[in-house]
Simulated assay, not measured.
Amino acid sequence: MSDSSSSGSGGSAASVPARPTVPLVAPVGPDGTAASARGEPAEAMREVARDRDHLFLLHEALVDAERESSLEARLEVVVNAIRKIGFGRVLLSLRDAELNQTKLVSAGLAPEDVRELRDRPASGIVWKRRLNSLERFRVSQSFYLDASDEWIAREFHGGLPSRLAPSDDVQWNPRDALLVPLKGNDGRIIATLVLDDPADRHRPTLARVRTVELFGQQVAYMIEQAVLIEIARRRADRLARLHEVGVMLARSLDEDDIVAELARQIGRVMPCDGIVIASPDVEENFVTTLFRSVRGVRRPRAPQPL
């Protein structure tokens, strides 16, 4: 796990269909016979069954997530589902246009590790540098952070300490991690997904990496939808306030009331410490302050020269 500065609308949904008890597809050889019929190891069959189960897990997670009312709750559902496909720890970091962390959702991490990652995240500048240098670690659309590599060890400072012991897989290190950048429709990275502590203590297979990426695509969609909904909400709110101003202007002929209401609505649309509404007189070369408020306190001001 490598993301700190020191370490790197709800609604009802259809019922989930029952999982089939047999693989959906059985691997076959060139002669058309099933692997088991040829006496080959059943690992290929088990791999197909695992892939099937992971897809059903994704479907169930999406159904459950739709029942949640907030983005964070939805992301928690999916992050916990990702953990179930074979990773002990999962860290999802939402990022702004500069790649700075804006929100953190995790599963499987100790509370002190979550605090460390939330309070001391690596800056967007650091993440830009990292992502620009990761191409040689690419696996599909992700990157495998090999802790035995000197650059990875130096750049990510070894990551958070793992709770796993080394395995007989010499290609796997307990400090290894899988990094999955999540991109929006415009190609910009909007989040990063970091996974480690695999249950089998082996490097993830390409099939498992692609399964994680499939989950990641759904996470990216959720994030973008939430952003669009928030933009639409703010626009609707502003239009409603403009309508209120229009009603006020039509209802009152008192200039002070109109100006005060206009200032109040401006303060609601654009939160700020002070509001000044002034009327300049170019011919007489002075400006009259019609309304002046600082932190909610009216502060009249005499006419001033332009």
Rank of each mutant, 00 (worst) to 15 (best):
F143E: 01
P271W: 08
R175V: 05
S9F: 14
V194L: 10
V105M: 07
L131F: 05
F156K: 02
A81S: 06
D119M: 11
L62C: 11
G158H: 07
L195D: 05
T102L: 08
R210Y: 06
S15C: 06
L228N: 15
K103L: 11
R238C: 10
F286R: 15
P166H: 06
E68L: 09
M222H: 14
A199E: 10
G108N: 07
V79W: 07
V79P: 03
K84D: 09
L57T: 15
A35H: 14
V245W: 05
A240Y: 11
S123R: 07
E76M: 00
N173Q: 08
I125E: 11
A97H: 03
R264T: 15
V287P: 00
R163I: 03
Q225E: 14
N185E: 14
S140A: 14
D149Y: 06
T102W: 05
I229N: 12
W172A: 11
S252D: 11
V209R: 08
L55H: 08
L290W: 10
V126E: 11
D257K: 14
P23G: 04
R89C: 03
T205Y: 05
R19M: 10
N132A: 12
V259I: 15
L134W: 02
A226W: 04
G32H: 07
F215C: 09
R50Q: 12
G88N: 07
D3P: 08
F291Q: 07
E116I: 02
G246C: 13
I258T: 12
N132P: 04
G11E: 11
I223K: 00
S7R: 11
K128S: 11
G32E: 09
E284D: 12
L164G: 00
L55F: 06
Y221S: 14
L182T: 08
L206A: 15
R201P: 04
M248D: 13
V287E: 13
D200E: 14
A153K: 06
G39E: 09
S70H: 04
D196R: 00
H54P: 02
S7P: 01
I229M: 10
L75V: 04
R298Y: 04
A207N: 08
A263K: 01
L178Q: 04
R292S: 15
A232V: 10
L99D: 06
V28W: 02
C272S: 15
L99H: 09
D96W: 01
P30D: 12
Q218P: 03
L182N: 04
L164I: 04
R235M: 11
G10W: 13
L179Q: 01
L92H: 02
E224Q: 13
D31S: 14
D200P: 06
Y221K: 13
F286D: 07
R19D: 03
T102Y: 08
P41A: 12
G8D: 03
D237A: 15
P30K: 05
S293P: 02
M1L: 10
V297F: 08
S69L: 12
P161S: 03
P305N: 11
L117G: 05
R118G: 03
L290R: 14
R210M: 13
R201Y: 02
F56K: 06
V269H: 09
D197K: 01
T288I: 08
R188N: 13
A153H: 09
S293C: 06
V90N: 00
